[in-house]
């Protein structure tokens, strides 16, 4: 426990603690505002009446001088004071001179990349370090072109866009922020899992026998040709398995959601979603069933 406090208060980890507090606060704020809005709408108010009802009757537009300029000025002063105090209280870390021959254990990337480093436990580097970051960036950029629900533009609501919000919150809070925290606070020497009350013992060894997907479920050697085809099938079927079932339902095809989206958008959306969901699925397979690779090939493993 003593050591956990040391890790939390390490100068470079303090920002993570600050971030966690802010993320919790703003999540609470968004939910509070959204629930307020949804309730007001349920009572039959119009969108405009429901948003910030308490300020109704104020002018729509305000003069930048003095209103906005004053706010910017105050915030700039506030941020400056905050940074000054932070910089007086806490020194930036500086370790020994760089030495390629002394590898620290654990070796960690900068904290904001630790979510990706954490995924290295579950995926090979070409997926965790190259494919996924690119998919994340492209996927984020695609959001406005996939989520074409016209409701909820410019105000908080949960009821008018439940799907978009749940997917985003799952990605942001669990796959990004939580992974950063795990990578920082729970991963010690050898990138092994350490609970806060456990000491980061450099000599700790965890016996873990991992087996591949085809060995586990079919008793087929994953390196054999048969194992190859089973792995390929599992990976190749994952995507249609997520993407197509809703399409088989006539009620879904007729739904307003699908009608608006169209087939192309739907396919882009569902393939991105399948990629995103593959991450927790692989984690579960790994943690609970000790499955290392789904698909083993001569050139790469998945």
């Amino acid at each position: 426990m003593h050591q956990f406090w040391e890790i939390i208060s390490k100068a470079d980890n303090v920002p993570i603690v600050i971030m966690l507090v802010l993320v919790c606060f703003f999540t609470w704020l968004s939910f509070r505002e959204a629930l307020k809005y949804d309730r007001a709408r349920a009572e039959g108010k119009t969108v405009k009446q429901a948003v910030y009802a308490e300020e109704a009757g104020f002018p729509e537009r305000v003069a930048v001088w003095p209103h906005l300029v004053r706010q910017e000025f105050l915030v700039a002063i506030g941020v400056t004071i905050f940074l000054m105090l932070w910089s007086i209280a806490l020194d930036a870390p500086l370790e020994e001179l760089a030495n390629p021959n002394v590898t620290p254990n654990p070796s960690k990337a900068p904290w904001y990349f630790l979510g990706l480093q954490e995924l290295l436990v579950y995926f090979d580097p070409w997926i965790a370090g190259v494919m996924l970051p690119n998919v994340i960036v492209v996927g984020l950029m695609a959001i406005p072109y996939i989520d074409i629900n016209p409701k909820g533009s410019g105000y908080y609501t949960l009821r008018e866009r439940p799907l978009a919000i749940s997917i985003f919150l799952f990605g942001f809070l669990f796959l990004w922020v939580l992974m950063v925290c795990i990578g920082t606070f729970a991963r010690g020497p050898g990138w092994l899992w350490f609970w806060p009350w456990q000491h980061w013992d450099v000599h700790r060894v965890v016996a873990e026998t991992n087996i591949d997907f085809s060995d586990k479920f079919f008793g087929v050697d994953s390196a054999s040709p048969m194992g190859f085809w089973i792995g390929l099938a599992a990976v190749a079927l994952w995507f249609p398995a997520v993407m197509f079932p809703p399409l088989l339902l006539p009620s879904f095809r007729r739904s307003e959601f699908f009608q608006r989206l169209g087939i192309v958008r739907y396919l882009v959306f569902s393939s991105l979603l399948a990629t995103m969901l593959a991450t927790p699925v692989k984690m579960i397979l790994r943690i609970f069933l000790h499955v290392k690779y789904i698909w083993v090939t001569e050139w790469f493993n998945v």
């Binding site: 500086l94 760089a98 070796s107 990337a109 070409w126 370090g129 190259v130 494919m131």
Partner: peptide, 24 residues
């Protein structure tokens, strides 16, 4: 800063590039 912290963080980060499909 050229210290152990920066050196190893960047080493870990750029080692990912080795695994780039086709280009690593």
């Amino acid at each position: 800063t050229d210290d152990q912290l920066g050196f190893w963080a960047v080493t870990v980060g750029t080692n990912m590039a080795r695994a780039t499909p086709l280009l690593g």
